[in-house]
Design a protein around this nucleic acid. Structure first.
Lengths: 215, 215
DNA sequence: ACATGTGAACTGCTTCACAGCG
DNA sequence: CGCTGTGAAGCAGTTCACATGT
């Protein structure tokens, strides 16, 4: 009934997208083992959720299963890649070539999923001109010029908290619409810019809370 | 009316705890600037939420404000530290001394909030016996023995995805009740063990989805 | 017979709106 | 009067349960 792949008729919840991402990982695992079909129940068990949740998540995008049978592993994997926008290559710049920036630059998970790192930026003259693995470290003064020319899709922020908002303003001013923030600070950006923050301090405090408040 | 500090009468939502953590950060910022009181409205603006949300979040734990005035910055900061369990020192072990493990070992945010890293563990003989900054890298074979002796509160996992579940099983078997997982995989643990996962691949896919599905 | 797809019921987080109190 | 604290209302995400299709 619904032939288009990624129709967001309704607004899709963040939690749903995260689960789709998890399902895709399991499917790739199953694909590697040569399994051809999988049920919502099996997918649910792996992902720590329920079969109804799996079916509901998928139903926002179409009807990919066969009643009485389950889902075709390769087909569903393909559909999920389409839905998640993993069919194309996304270009990334890393802003901040400190410890975390360097670790990310060398993280192989990026490439594996079609994320290609163009460059890292820093203001430290010691680092500018060097390479992280095979990624050039450039002067942060070039940031806007380079972005306008190379049009990266995503900016990854690994600068100190105090500088993060100013970097957001700079990359947004030259058209970046997606930001992955590792600085432990709340960022403000226009509504058409998606910001995801990974905040280790916050996660640790969540663990501290959990350890403290259980009877 | 409610004299105890951290009474979880109701189950506190994860989202609430994350916001409390954010409020504390802002309060520390205000404290540094010598400001003495703050309203729920100001706290909300900074945190990208609403004043009602701030008041509701705090109301789960008591009545810390003064009507017509707002909150005392130092008092509220103290209360939040108490609620989040930041009054004491938490002991951490890092399992996996790869790029990310090394970056975390050197991350100053841990110490600042009272998280003290005891050691890192790896199975690579090249790394065992060395130090990351001033944190010893030990043989992962010692993991259980050391945990039983040193009783760390939190295990941070920076091992490959394939090994993550087995490390969970090992640390849980010797009493660890809180895990911060950086491996891109779904982990299963007993109900009394809190697991938080930081999954960069998932965040990136969330950005990919957002970039793909907007009209 | 079996597993999907989906309206309906439910649960729980967020927002509203105002009473309460400094 | 101003801002907190909080029941009540509203809304969104999850779970239920069953009709549907193979």
């Amino acid at each position: 009934m619904n032939s288009q792949a990624a129709v967001s008729v309704k607004r899709i919840a963040d939690s749903t997208v995260r689960r789709l991402s998890a399902y895709l990982r399991f499917l790739e695992d199953f694909e590697g083992r040569g399994l051809m079909t999988i049920s919502s129940e099996e997918l649910a068990k792996r992902g720590g959720t329920t079969s109804a949740q799996v079916r509901k998540d998928l139903s926002f995008f179409g009807s990919f299963g066969k009643r009485g049978l389950g889902y075709s592993v390769p087909e569903l994997a393909g559909r999920l890649r389409e839905i998640l926008g993993l069919g194309r290559e996304w270009k990334i710049v890393i802003v901040g070539a400190g410890k975390i920036g360097a670790a990310l630059a060398q993280y192989r998970g990026f490439r594996q999923r079609g994320f290609s790192i163009l460059a890292a930026y820093d203001n430290n003259p010691e680092k500018i001109g060097r390479k992280l693995e095979d990624i050039p470290v450039r002067d942060i003064d070039q940031l806007e010029r380079d972005i306008e020319r190379e049009k990266p899709d995503i900016a990854v922020l690994t600068v100190p908290a105090e500088e993060a908002q100013s970097v957001v303003n700079r990359v947004v001013s030259v058209g970046v619409k997606a930001i992955l923030n590792f600085a432990p600070t709340q960022l403000h950006a226009p509504a058409d810019v998606t910001v995801k923050t990974v905040n280790m301090a916050m996660e640790l405090e969540g663990l501290s809370f959990a350890l403290t408040n259980r009877e």
